[in-house]
Each structure stands twice: as structure tokens, then as C-alpha cells.
Write a protein that binds this DNA or RNA. Structure first.
Lengths: 341, 341
DNA sequence: ATCATCCGTGTAATCGATTCCACGGCTTGA
DNA sequence: TCAAGCCGTGGAATCGATTACACGGATGAT
């Protein structure tokens, strides 16, 4: 592959001049510029990003470590992150943690070894001292969706309080009183917050959230299935199962089907995170939609702000309730049950 | 961040010795090794992958350009690719083409600029002379899922002939005669093959595939919706709509719902690509499952074979039919309607 | 005892870019 | 006319690693 030396030789100039042309430095004569450009074209020359990065100490690359690529929520997030980054002249390297802290740390380390300019993380369950260390060394870093308390970096996330309170009001209006939740791992912020918001909203309606109605999940489908099976074996099963993410909702649906029960007649389902498939499940699932695209874009902007030396901003955007029919027919159907995720 | 020089100074040796320790070169004295390791630990030193790549001319990184990250089939593929690559000591950088050739080319170029060791591509619709050029320059490259005729690189893919023929037999047995297909873009190999296999299987049952029953899609949900709307407006609509990928099946489901029709009573649906969600749609969708994990792994192995100088192999694995209820109740229900994707 | 060999180590070249500094030629102002 | 300044350019240092080569000392064979 042609190097800058080949171009210089072909154009009859020094490598310094070639570099100047390529970086549009002003002091290059029109003639030299023309000859360099011709040589570049002729040789099909493309600058070696590796060499350039070594010299300039920047890679124009962002790292994104997500908890689970198979989760449509994170895929959607990854897509918007990549788009915004590309618009700002950065590439993105995605690492999939698969909800496993060791794998998350593996990716963080590889990304750091590659000297990415900044890191976007949605931390997995379990504590990882590494992330704290990384933040402390001054590597530009931003949390997206989930964050870690005690690590002082900007956080870009959705706030579900309002939407969860709307959800509980909706369920209450439909006559449901026994509401259960499948929680995410306690160590993730999103896991806790959603339970707390749910409990609070129930209290506002004079309802209690008994421990038996709190299932421990790990954001994966299998855990949703297990938790739901347990709910269904209770002497008094809940009327509604609210899953703290979309995959656990899927597992819940499985468990309910396996028992031969119907949704929503026998038991209702709702989920945090709205994804296109929820329109097509039987029945369509009532969900809380996050502004995924906006979150991804805001996260990239915050990170690039840090990278480029501007003051970054934490961002919190509201999630909103999308009512469908998985908890029973709503009294007043929403004008458009389709989410705009 | 500490460099190899800092480690050398701290350990009281030269950078050469440090490098030898790090690369487990045999001729280093135990004492020196110990001091170097201590210094590495002490400084939290991690080798700079950028510098190393520049010198060794290899990045131990593979590029993967997929057609659409929002398509669960490709996400599953990406996941298995990353896993296998990690097991073999490589990292993966994913580029999302969004079914757009320019965006695909953008990613290919960026990946090449970064001097990835090899490229895994599932080419998008539309011709891209770039890929051919890249292959010709000797960059290690492997096609996965889709390929481009005339570009001489190994192809790792699933063969759907048998499964499609099974599908048509299944539909025929259920009494369906008017079968329609939503094709992928003509320029993609998978697009064409699936239509041809379908046509051939129909002919084997004495059925014709009229042009009106061939919808032109682009592997995106919206095109599946449009094609299905067109089918439904025909004087004699088909009894079954077979979508050449999962997203178009989703679009088809949309269109059918929008007309207030029921699946499978009014019209049946089947899809190429099986994804977890198809178990949960209303009704569960009959689909053709690709051995996605095996495909991803085989593709990585083929690519790494090229990179490391071994002779690579093209691989074709059979897809298989997973019967569910979206085309009517099967006479003999399959023992386990759950796909093992 | 002598010479060849081997082992552990350091010096320095190298990868492909960017960029500081110096230099020669030309313009411009006094 | 001459000094000062500017402009286009090239030489060379530099980023952080790897690795060929050289070298001194110890070991082993004869």
C-alpha cells in the first residue's frame, strides 16, 4: 500500500509538503498542491490512520460498550450513536459486554489500548473498579442509560418516573390492584430506579408492593421467565407483570404461554423499553418508550464536548407511556398506539 | 499514560528488554523479567496498540460490515463473529451500512485506513466497485450471508433451497395454492436466490408464481408493508405471503393488521430468517432458520485462515424450516416449535 | 589453554505520519 | 539600495513500539 513517501516521490516534493496538502495547510503553492493531488489520485493513496494516530495522539474514534447487543434497545442506541459520531467526524468501536462485568472490562481495556479518544459506557451489573479508575485518569467518558454512583462523569439517560406513574394510573384505572415487577439487577442504576418509581407510584394509589411481587431479573429473557413462573405459582398471583426491560417481558410472555394462560384476560404484561416488535406480539404490549435516538445523540455530543475541551452536560430526557392492549382494553384508546421510537 | 520507556527506566533495563518480556521472548534473565513485570504492574503500563500496529503492520482487528444493525439476524451474526474473533485473539470493528452502498463504502474505507487485518462483508444492494477493488488488492476478505458475483473471495452462507422446498410442501399440504413472495433487492444474492428457490419449489408442486405475486422489497419493514398492501388489493389476493427476511415479514404483518384481517385465517405469513420474536408474535410465525451462530464462527475462521496464511474455505450450511402457526395449524405439529437459533 | 558458541542485553533503525525550524528567494518599505 | 518580512519548501525530530545486529562474558569442547 502506497505511503506518503511514494506520493512525495511521484509528485517530486518532500513528505512535508504532501502532509501539508493533505491537511490543507495554507502555505503550499498551487503547483505543488496540484502535483500532490495528482499523485494521490494516481496511486490511490490513503493516509495510514495508525501512523497518524501515533503522531497526533488522537484516533478520532469513540468506544461504546453496551450491555447486550441482542437487546433491541441497545442496538437502536448503538445505531444513533454511530450516526451522530459519524456526523461529527468520529468512528465508533462497539464492545458487547453481554451483561458480564469481565467481558465489559475486557472491552474497556482493549479500547483503551487502542487509544480511543473517548468512552461511552452503559455499565453492566456487578462492580467494576476499572471504570472508576479510567474515569479518574482523565479519559473522556460518559455514561449512557445506566451509570455508576461515585464515578464522576456526565450521565445521559431517560427518566422513567413520570411514565411509570402514568403506567400505574393506567393499570389502576383498568381495575388492577395486584401489580408485580420483574426488576433488573440491583447493581444497575436502571434496575433500582424502576422498582423504586414503581413502588412510589403504587403507594400514591394506596397500593403496597409486597416482596413476593418483586422478581429478581438480570435483564435477560430467561430470568423474566423464571420470575413469572414464580409469580404464577403464588397462591394469589399478580394481575399484571411489569418487566423492567423488553427481554424480560419476552420471557414473561413465554412463561404465561407455557401455562396456557391468555394475555390480557388471565394476566397482563407491560414493559420498560419500547421496541418495534411490541406492536406485533400477541397482544401488542403496553410499554414505556425511551427517546433512544435522542439519548444516543446527546451522549455522543457530551463525549465529544469533553474530548474537544468544551464543558460537557449531563442530560436527562423523559420516557413516556405507550398504551396498547396487553393489560386490557384502555377506556379511552390512545390516538396512535404506535411508538415513534 | 506510561510508555515503554518509563517501564524501562523504572526497571533499570532498556526498552528492548521490556519489549522482550512483554512478547515472551525466551532470552531474558529471570531477574530482568521480574523487575520489568514489577515496573509494568507498578505503573499500570499497557502497551500502545497504535504504536505496535505501526511497527508490526498488523492490528489484530477484523472489520465487519453488515447491512443493517436493526435487523436481529445481523445482530446475532455480529455477536457470534465477535465471540469467535475474541477467542482467536482478534477484535472486531462493526460498520453498519443501513442497506446503503455509499455508507457501506464509507465504512470499508475507514476500516482500511485503520489497517484492519481482514474484512467480513455482507454487501448491501447496489453495486460497489470498491469491494471488488479491495479484494483485488489482496486485502483478506470474506463474504458472509450475501456475496457479490465476480469477486473472488470465500463465501460463508446458508443454503435455503431445501428449507424453502420444505416450506412450499408444508403450505401445499395445508391446502394453500396462491403463494406470494416479497423479494429482497435484485442486486443482492440472497434476494434472488430465495425467489428462485421458491419458484422452483412451487413448480415442483405444479404451481406457478405469477409476477403479480412477486413483491419488490428492500429488506426493510416499510417495503414489506407496501408489497403486502399491494397483494391485498389484488382481485385475487394470495393465501400466503412469504417474506424474504424478517423485517419485511414484520411489515407484512402491519399491513394485514391495518386491513383488519387475521393471520392465519384470512391470510398466512412465513419468513426467511428466524428470530426469537417470531415465537411471540400473534400468531407465532413459521420461518426458515439459519444457523446464524455457526455462520458467524465459520466466517471468522475463514477470514483468519487467510490473514494467517492458511488456505481458506467457503462454507455453505443448510437452513431449516421451523413450522409454527402463521400459515394455519399443521396436520402434525412439530415436536418443538422453538427455534434453536 | 584456546576458540567457538551461546546467552542476555543494549543500540539504533524502522514503521508512516506531523510539525518545528531553517533556508533561500522575493517583495516591500525606508 | 538594503534590511526586514513573508512564503514555499525541505530536513529532521518525534510518537511508541519491534527487532536486527553487535557486544561482552560465561560455558563447553578439544
Amino acid at each position: 500500500m502506497a505511503s506518503i513517501k511514494d506520493v512525495a516521490a511521484q509528485a517530486g516534493v518532500s513528505v512535508a509538503t504532501v502532509s501539508r496538502v493533505l491537511n490543507s495547510h495554507p502555505s503550499v503553492s498551487p503547483g505543488a498542491r496540484r502535483r500532490v493531488l495528482a499523485a494521490v489520485e494516481d496511486l490511490g493513496y490513503r493516509p495510514n490512520a495508525v501512523a497518524r494516530s501515533l503522531r497526533t495522539d488522537q484516533t478520532r474514534t469513540l468506544g461504546l460498550v453496551i450491555s447486550d447487543v441482542l437487546n433491541p434497545y441497545f442496538t437502536a442506541l448503538a445505531r444513533s450513536v454511530e450516526e451522530e459520531a459519524r456526523a461529527l467526524g468520529y468512528s465508533v468501536i462497539i464492545g458487547n459486554a453481554d451483561e458480564r462485568p469481565e467481558q465489559q472490562d475486557h472491552h474497556v481495556r482493549t479500547l483503551l489500548d487502542r487509544r480511543i479518544d473517548g468512552l461511552l459506557v452503559s455499565p453492566a451489573d456487578g462492580d467494576s473498579p476499572l471504570l472508576g479508575d479510567v474515569a479518574r485518569t482523565g479519559t473522556p467518558m460518559v455514561f449512557v442509560d445506566r451509570w455508576m454512583p461515585g464515578v464522576d462523569v456526565p450521565v445521559v439517560r431517560a427518566d422513567g418516573h413520570r411514565a411509570i406513574s402514568d403506567l400505574v394510573a393506567h393499570l389502576y384505572a383498568l381495575g388492577h390492584r395486584r401489580l408485580a415487577i420483574i426488576a433488573g439487577p440491583a447493581a444497575t442504576t436502571t434496575g433500582n430506579e424502576r422498582v423504586e418509581a414503581f413502588r412510589e407510584a403504587m403507594r400514591a394509589h394506596g397500593l403496597a408492593l409486597p416482596d413476593a411481587y418483586i422478581g429478581q431479573g438480570d435483564f435477560q429473557a430467561a430470568s423474566g421467565r423464571r420470575a413469572t413462573e414464580h409469580f404464577l405459582s403464588l397462591p394469589e398471583p399478580p394481575q399484571i407483570v411489569f418487566a423492567a426491560d423488553n427481554l424480560m417481558a419476552l420471557g414473561a410472555l413465554d412463561a404465561i404461554r407455557a401455562r396456557g394462560l391468555r394475555v390480557p384476560e388471565d394476566i397482563g404484561i407491560a414493559a420498560f423499553d419500547d421496541i418495534p416488535w411490541f406492536l406485533h406480539t400477541g397482544p401488542p404490549i403496553t410499554a414505556i418508550a425511551q427517546p433512544t435516538g435522542d439519548l444516543g445523540r446527546a451522549a455522543v455530543r457530551a463525549l465529544v464536548d469533553i474530548v474537544e475541551g468544551r464543558p460537557p452536560q449531563s442530560v436527562t430526557l423523559p420516557a413516556r407511556l405507550v398504551v396498547r392492549s396487553s393489560c386490557g382494553e384502555p377506556a379511552l384508546p390512545a390516538p396512535d398506539p404506535r411508538s415513534n421510537v
